[in-house]
Design a protein around this nucleic acid. Structure first.
Lengths: 207, 207
DNA sequence: GTAGCTTTGTGAAACATTTCACAATGCTAG
DNA sequence: CTAGCATTGTGAAATGTTTCACAAAGCTAC
């Protein structure tokens, strides 16, 4: 498949969210313009984004909401569940595990690791926290698809190396640094300090 | 000032982090290549990013670490502190407030709001949680620069409207929807489900 | 002072993404 | 069946971002 821009994938994900909302309201059909208005983009952008994957609408009419929902599930790979391992059971980590929304969308936390003996053995969102020393032993059994990394920055890279070695291909990284991984591993980094600094920049340099 | 790409601002923020680390190690001077290697980009990109704001290096030698740190602080608007209001004192919200890193970087939480009577009156990170009904009264006194919005999606837009009406110009949004705000207000949205879906896409469509 | 080495700063080229604009299509009404 | 309207799908144009490549500059050694 032709290379798709990350920005396109993210927008598709947004469209899907809106479409599910429309579907819940019993709306049958929607135009690219209406979808765009809801997602802060333009109708041409919506049509172009979808056109990379096929032709889902009817000219003159728009898109069938249920059909497009189904198509986007297919495109985004959401027709199956994903097994997620959490490394770091601190405040952010536990907030993620206990978030109902992820499970509803097919992301199941199947293993949780921490270094702190006070946390090991306790249950979070129905999963028992294991010693991060057991990472290899446990993940070999568990077969996680995605790792969520919420460790202190000092150990993030070495944990990432171990995850890569275990065959993990997708990492969601909350540690405030740039992970170095092989090209076939996808990392998405969420860096909150960086978001705040981008806001500070806009306050300091209003257009 | 000429319009600077968001991607450039974000990279500058990353460079600053690495530079502070180098500074802590007593390193005096660094080349664009060394900075790039650390940040997953290229030396040309580093030089181009900096060139939008001036000329900070010495040919043949590189950049003085302390000087560049200082320059980036200036550029990013980090020479002063920012007053941050948190709306939503749930798990993610409290994890943010109690994070030492933000305060260290000059982002001070000065007000916290929630709807839940069980939370109102309790202190989080040294700040007392107020009833979100008091938003207007309290923020008029407090003069926050930045709002961090961690409410359920149903109320996020209406709270955002109230914040905009209070004169807030920068919002960091964790609610999983697209906020509609006037053009002079900057919103950065952190949508974790969307990040996971982007990872799912890459698992479903490996290149 | 000069040669040799290194590294910046920056136009220009290459590449990527978004927007435009319009032919093609399908629906509705009469 | 035809006219009129709405809306898609998509090349082409416009715009935005990254990479290239090289002259300019500064340091070191002698």
């Amino acid at each position: 498949m032709r290379k798709i821009a990350d920005s396109t994938v993210r927008r598709l994900s947004l469209y899907l969210r809106f479409l599910e909302e429309f579907e819940g309201q019993g709306i049958e059909t929607i135009s690219s313009g209406a979808l765009a208005g809801r997602g802060g983009t333009t109708s041409a952008q919506v049509r172009k984004d979808l056109s990379f994957f096929g032709s889902f609408g009817k000219r003159g009419l728009g898109y069938s909401v249920p059909e497009l929902v189904q198509a986007l599930h297919q495109i985004l790979g959401l027709t199956r569940h994903y097994r997620v391992a959490l490394i770091g059971a601190g405040k952010i980590g536990s907030a993620l595990v206990e978030n109902r929304g992820f499970r509803r969308r097919g992301f199941d936390f199947v293993a949780i690791f921490d270094r702190d003996p006070a946390k090991i053995g306790r249950a979070l969102g129905g999963v028992q926290v294991e010693d991060v020393a057991q990472l290899e032993a446990s993940l070999t059994r568990t077969h996680a698809d995605i790792a969520v990394l919420v460790t202190p920055p000092e150990v993030a890279q070495s944990v990432a190396d171990r995850l890569v070695h275990l065959g993990i291909k997708s990492i969601l990284n909350f540690a405030p640094l740039q992970l170095v991984v092989p090209a076939n591993v996808t990392v998405k980094t969420v860096n909150l300090a960086l978001e705040l600094e981008a806001l500070a920049y806009h306050l300091a340099n209003p257009n």
